[in-house]
Amino acid sequence: MAIYPFVAIVGQEPLKEALLMAAIEPSIGGVLALGDRGTGKSTAIRALASLLPEIEVVRGCPYRCSPVQPAEHCPACAEGAERIAERMPAPVVDLPLGATEDRVVGALNLERALSSGEKSFEPGLLARANRGFLYIDEVNLLDDHLVDLLLDVAASGENVVEREGLSVRHPSRFVLVGSGNPEEGDLRPQLLDRFGLCVDVRTSADLRERMEIVRRRDAFERDPDGFVRDWSRKTSALRRRVVAARDKVSKVAMPDDVLEKAVQLCMALGADGLRGELTLMRAARARAALAGEPAVSMLSLKSVAPLALRHRLRKDPLDDTDASVRVERAVEEVFIP
């Protein structure tokens, strides 16, 4: 099944930039896209898969363990058995809104248990998402017990299943990506805090842009494979940029004067904890790496500030100003020439 190309998406620049930064620097902590229905949130997130570099895995491992990182191995790979390396696309796994806990965490393989009496574990979505992306559409409608489960796994990087006589632990490190319409309910603060970047997605108000969106979508639906081929060269070019940026993001310098502004900005906004500063630093580095810059500039820091901080602000019952506006106002105050 053809997937709409990322490079063919018209507009929505903040969303596309946030997804690219998360692909370049997974430690940012993922992306949350909130906004109107039909604005391309799911399309952009699913299209990201075509830009991700391949990963090296242990052949036959259901958890996609890395052949060269023993600290993150599942029990089978850690036992020292022969590990043959192979390459595969980085996983982008959908977590359906109505998914059961068994499907998410894994469960007893009933077919094998009934046919041979053998107790074996059937890995779930958290196993499939290891070393990749886990996407949740309508994340604000996710059942509370699944939210608790995801918070535990996201914090530890490990999925623990103890039920039906089974006791299984396996690595589950993933970048969490979610989308939703805020009119249908708010996210729990604990889950909201787990997303590194938050994007406010709105319907385009530009006539020409809307016409181009409709034109391209219609062309894709009439001939999906042909449309994807038409955009393949630009897709390959962007993939090469992402791969190059991932290779050099750790080498991008963070000057002290830029870091000082990042801390001042978080203090001015009253952001709780230090996740705001860390996310700002990582996102600004990713943006600089994508642009081919050797060091983070003030421009990169200001550009990523709304994405990294808008969802970390304390709610003020006396101030109903939009969160993005509050961040932009603080940026203007902190970055006074």
Rank of each mutant, 00 (worst) to 15 (best):
A107W: 07
A107N: 12
A107P: 03
L108M: 12
L108T: 11
L108N: 06
L108V: 11
N109D: 15
N109C: 10
L110W: 10
L110S: 04
E111H: 13
E111V: 15
E111M: 13
E111R: 15
R112M: 15
R112I: 15
R112L: 15
A113R: 14
L114S: 10
L114Y: 13
L114N: 06
L114T: 07
S115V: 12
S115Q: 13
S115N: 11
G117D: 07
G117L: 08
G117V: 10
E118N: 09
E118A: 13
K119C: 10
S120D: 14
S120W: 05
S120Y: 05
F121P: 05
F121H: 06
F121V: 07
E122G: 03
E122M: 03
E122L: 07
E122F: 02
P123R: 10
L126T: 09
L126P: 06
A127V: 12
A127T: 12
A127S: 14
R128C: 11
R128L: 14
A129E: 03
N130H: 15
N130V: 10
N130D: 04
N130R: 10
R131D: 09
R131A: 13
L134P: 03
L134A: 10
Y135D: 00
D137H: 00
D137K: 02
E138H: 02
V139G: 02
V139Q: 01
V139W: 00
L141A: 00
L141S: 01
L142I: 04
L142S: 03
D143Q: 13
D143N: 14
D144Y: 13
H145V: 06
V147H: 05
D148T: 10
L149H: 14
L149D: 02
L150F: 08
L151T: 08
